[in-house]
Amino acid sequence: MQNSHSGVNQLGGVFVNGRPLPDSTRQKIVELAHSGARPCDISRILQVSNGCVSKILGRYYETGSIRPRAIGGSKPRVATPEVVSKIAQYKRECPSIFAWEIRDRLLSEGVCTNDNIPSVSSINRVLRNLASEKQQMGADGMYDKLRMLNGQTGSWGTRPGWYPGTSVPGQPTQDGCQQQEGGGENTNSISSNGEDSDEAQMRLQLKRKLQRNRTSFTQEQIEALEKEFERTHYPDVFARERLAAKIDLPEARIQVWFSNRRAKWRREEKLRNQRRQASNTPSHIPISSSFSTSVYQPIPQPTTPVSSFTSGSMLGRTDTALTNTYSALPPMPSFTMANNLPMQPPVPSQTSSYSCMLPTSPSVNGRSYDTYTPPHMQTHMNSQPMGTSGTTSTGLISPGVSVPVQVPGSEPDMSQYWPRLQ
């Protein structure tokens, strides 16, 4: 039975679970980093996980050691009161100082060594604690504590007292930064006198190289990059290397530039699409467009005044059976039934097929058609009795279509119309 579990990581490298990497692998990681390889490249070359490479390099940059820390136990506290007071002093002298600059000053002034120097995250935590204590304490208590930490007896009751030896409130920041720059020169002199001055200088240079600022491109470089971006948004590694040799930039910087440029292009394309949609959409909808001609068919113009009344309900007709019959029939052209047409008796099958359309009241044959006459024609229609054979009435077949029909004066039988409509 094995005491430890061995495995293979996602890159194909072998590791022992819970145990640190061998010293030979750690040394190779540092050597590759000094030669300029990126952590992701080191991870692929040595088949070590990216997190492990970053952790080893980060500890090497901070402490200069590649040895693993002790497994188990607690780390001794490195942010001692003396170190905290120095950090507060540096922050007062130059409020814009960075944590890694404070760390360098602690090393250069001999406050800490490589073994007990606090990390950048520890210094940031100390600065946050100082800021929170400043908010919790009152103004007087804060000034007393700062005077105690600074070891001075001057008056701290006013704002300019934060910067000793100065009279203009805006000047101390520059003086403090100048003092810090002077301390940086002392850093070089002190570290050069040490035993491991060369190694420390190499480590600091490598650290500065990794902690780079934003790349500033010249106009020629920007023009070359934009020209390549117009050709393709995704250049391959050969195109990037050719462009890197042409404009004297690292291939990694060119790759990052193209990634950022593609993101910018997507944002601009989104804005262009929004403007295009806004320009195509009308600002207001016309009133006429809300009524579609496919839904509402136009009603033909009436030929006679009587045809303006298109349904039985508008003429005072309360018989719903006839109203439904007229509205359900398709529109037909106007025609006239003459008196000489043969009077065919209704076929029983045809009569039964339209039995649902006729009223059940037996008085329908005896009703006159003056009910369908509009009010303004009552006088004219009353002067001509319906009993004469020459009287013409208008029957409504569908809305908007008038059918003048000659009705025999002897017997106005409704059943004569249905064979004609089939």
Rank of each mutant, 00 (worst) to 15 (best):
K28F: 08
I97F: 07
K75M: 06
E109R: 09
V30M: 08
L149Q: 05
R69Q: 08
R26H: 01
Q135D: 13
K86F: 10
D144S: 08
R44C: 06
S54N: 15
T63G: 02
R26E: 02
L46W: 04
N50T: 15
N124Y: 14
S108L: 13
V14R: 06
V126D: 01
G72F: 01
Y143W: 11
P81H: 12
P95S: 15
S122T: 00
I56L: 15
V30S: 05
G64R: 06
R147D: 12
A70R: 08
D144F: 11
G18C: 00
K55Q: 02
R67P: 01
R38Q: 05
R125M: 03
G141F: 09
V30A: 15
I71T: 07
P81F: 09
C94M: 12
V16G: 06
S4A: 11
L149D: 06
S24F: 15
N17F: 00
N17P: 00
I117E: 09
I71M: 07
G64Q: 05
N17G: 04
S4M: 12
Q89K: 14
V111D: 14
Y143M: 12
V83E: 01
A88P: 01
G141K: 15
Q136I: 09
K134S: 14
P39S: 08
S74M: 01
P118T: 05
L146I: 09
Y143N: 10
P39T: 12
I117Q: 06
L130V: 15
A33P: 00
L57P: 03
I45S: 14
S43Q: 03
H5T: 10
N129L: 06
S54D: 01
V126K: 15
P20E: 00
P22H: 07
N9V: 01
Q47M: 13
S96P: 15
D23F: 06
C52K: 01
V111H: 13
Q2N: 08
I56Q: 01
R92N: 15
K28L: 07
T25A: 15
Y90P: 01
N114G: 09
V120M: 03
Y60D: 04
P39R: 15
I71W: 04
M142I: 12
Q10E: 06
S132G: 15
N9L: 02
A33I: 04
P39Q: 00
L107V: 13
I87W: 00
I56M: 04
Y143F: 12
I42S: 01
R19L: 05
D140N: 10
Y90C: 10
V78T: 04
I45Y: 13
A79D: 00
